[in-house]
Design a binder for these strands. Sequence first.
DNA 1: TCTGGGGTCCTAGGACCC
DNA 2: TCTGGGGTCCTAGGACCC
Length: 431
Amino acid sequence: MAKALKNPPVAVVDCNNFYASCERVFNPKLQGKPIVVLSNNDGIIVARSEEAKALGIKMGEPLFKVEDIVKKHKVNVFSSNYVLYGDISHRVMATLEQFSPDVEIYSIDEAFINLAGFKRKNLTEYSREIRETVYKWVGIPVSIGIAETKTLSKIANRVAKKDPKYNGVLNLYGSTNIDEYLKITDVSDVWGVGHQYTKLLRKNNINSAFDLASTNDKWIKKNMTVMGLRTVFELRGIPCVSLENSPPAKKAIISSRSFGRYVETIEEIKEAVSLFVSRAAEKMREQHSACKLLTVFLRTNPFKKTPQYHNGVLVRMPVPTDATSELTSYAMKGVEQIFKSGFLYQKVGVMLAGFEPVDRSQLGLFDTENRIKLAKVTDTLDRINIEYGSRTLFYASSGIKRPWGTKSDMKSPRYTTDWENLPEVSAGEKK
DNA sequence: TCTGGGGTCCTAGGACCC
DNA sequence: TCTGGGGTCCTAGGACCC
């Protein structure tokens, strides 16, 4: 017996071990082999294939800690290749859009889909078709969970991924035994429950998703704010997080990176900040915003016992701008304000905020910069970089050699986005 | 040895105004 | 001796997500 349903079914499609799976798409020899993918700077492990998980390699572990396992089992290690992952992500999402007009791209490897209009009994079949099509067209394995709320669909997805008997799809929409699934889900695996809340909940003997769903509203609100209450309602089948199929513009854009080695001079700090300003400004122009606020921050390595210095400065621009050159000059003044010599810097970054929509016709009336000309320069810069590859043109202030740049020693080729790296198929080696 | 990067939302508390 | 109270705006900090 299915219960009465008021809400449309929402499916969450999640790519399995996304980065590791991406490395496999253009390198079939990796099929069945353990793979790990590293964070920026080749620091920690951010993705593992099933085979690597089976070897006991943990998420977030630094590579050196598992060096023995890596050698012994010939684990394939890759630096992150975000250009490749981004491109494959687009293909997955484009495929999903064939199946519903209502798709929310939630992250690089995850999307929510509104499946209103499909009969309950067909949801599972339809989801299997989605899964098979994505694999056939893009080569990425996905898992799909379906339920009345996003939080429940995430739980279904997790079960579908972990238990082979579901073959990648679990439909809890209208199911009468949802409680059974909530009971086998640890509270820490609930969407919206992180490390801190897990500790608090366990202390109060709330250990499963079922326990959480049964907890008194007042206690939840008091201890986990309205966000926690939302999660609890969702577990009870009451949707509180709606599907956003055209995500709002970003409120802040950050560009920051750890250095490949320590940096001590203001000249190198300025090069890095200049590079990050231009990246952030490009992203900002993609969403047609100009910003009033720019933050520059720098810091030493908090994990080291060396002298520590963390600082940031917020610059308010007199007139909102999206011009890299102008933002850079403010950022450089910011660096001069906060830089202190005598420290080993590990990371710097830039944040743009206080956005307003760009409306060029309004510019150039009240300030001294020639904004029409500036706008032309940035437009040209963006167009060339889009057509000929990013970083074709860049400001010399961001450094030419960049000896402080990110470590990335084990990167796969940019198979899909770079002519030089297109995979070659020779006769007799077709897959 | 090493320990990422880029986002969002909520709350508390201070400043300021009437 | 008196030293209210409500509203708004901003920021810092803490929680979360992938």
